[in-house]
């Protein structure tokens, strides 16, 4: 797709103490792109994702969201984050709130949407993720796959322009992975701009517009899924993929 730029990352660097986690990372995500970040644990892909909504603050470089360079000290990050939804590996639903309360929390208390309106929209989202019958259930009564679909609905309730997924299926039992990936695929087909850190190579191959392979804090290779998976240019990409399959 040839949409406008949604995310530009330029020469991004991030260290945790002595550990240099991201090294001169450059990346562009255009509107409606689905970008899958793949790589071994510790390659920096989750940190890169977390820098994009400022859960981690970069040391150096530029992060440009929808054309505007964002800095932690000059921008209200709470406002920036409203445009960027995030789905976590461990769901992080609010356990003391039921499903619909989880979904309406931020629209009502951050955006000031009326409760009635927020509930109406939340119900539509629950239909979309296939959990219309669960609105009054507490997270402790849901399966992992259901929890993650609620988490997706909760993020979508803020009507974000971009969705970030941090290993959304890694904590799930194998038989529950499919339902979450199906929801994500549907979202991709609707044109949502998505950045997905994943170990699901099947999903990356089928749904991604671009696959980004990271190793040792650097982006080693970027390409269409067919290129990356069938004829990777870089030796390290080949090595990684041969271990994965």
């Amino acid at each position: 797709m040839d949409g406008r730029d949604m995310i530009n990352v330029k020469k991004l660097n991030k260290s945790f103490g002595d550990l240099h986690v991201l090294k001169d990372v450059d990346m562009t995500v255009k509107e409606s792109d689905v970008v899958c970040l793949i790589g071994a644990s510790g390659s920096g892909k989750s940190t890169l994702l977390r820098c994009l909504n400022f859960l981690e603050i970069k040391d150096d470089g530029q992060i440009i969201i929808e054309g505007e360079e964002i800095n932690a000290n000059t921008h209200d990050l709470n406002e920036v984050r409203q445009k960027i939804g995030m789905v976590f590996q461990h769901f992080n639903l609010f356990p003391h709130k039921n499903v619909i309360e989880n979904i309406i929390e931020a629209p009502v208390h951050v955006k000031g949407v009326s409760k009635d309106q927020a509930i109406k929209e939340a119900r539509e989202l629950l239909v979309k993720v296939g959990l219309a019958d669960k609105e009054n259930v507490y997270p402790s009564r849901l399966s992992g796959g259901q929890k993650q679909r609620v988490a997706i609905a909760r993020a979508l309730a803020m009507k974000p322009d971009i969705m970030l997924f941090d290993e959304p299926t890694s904590a799930l039992d194998p038989e529950l992975v499919g339902e979450v990936l199906a929801t994500m695929k549907e979202l991709a087909e609707e044109g949502m701009t998505m950045v997905v850190v994943t170990h699901e190579m099947g999903f990356a191959r089928e749904v991604a517009d671009w696959v980004v392979y990271m190793h040792g804090g650097r982006i080693i290779e970027v390409g269409h899924p067919d290129e990356i998976f069938d004829k990777p240019k870089e030796e390290r990409t080949r090595e990684f993929l041969s271990k994965t399959f």
Binding site: R81, H90, N92, E105, A106, R154, M158
Partner: peptide, 18 residues
């Protein structure tokens, strides 16, 4: 309380206090 709770709130645009 798991620190993922604070992160989930922040990722939705909620302030630290909220």
């Amino acid at each position: 309380i798991d620190k993922g709770q604070m992160e989930a709130g922040r990722s939705l645009g909620m302030s630290r206090n909220l």
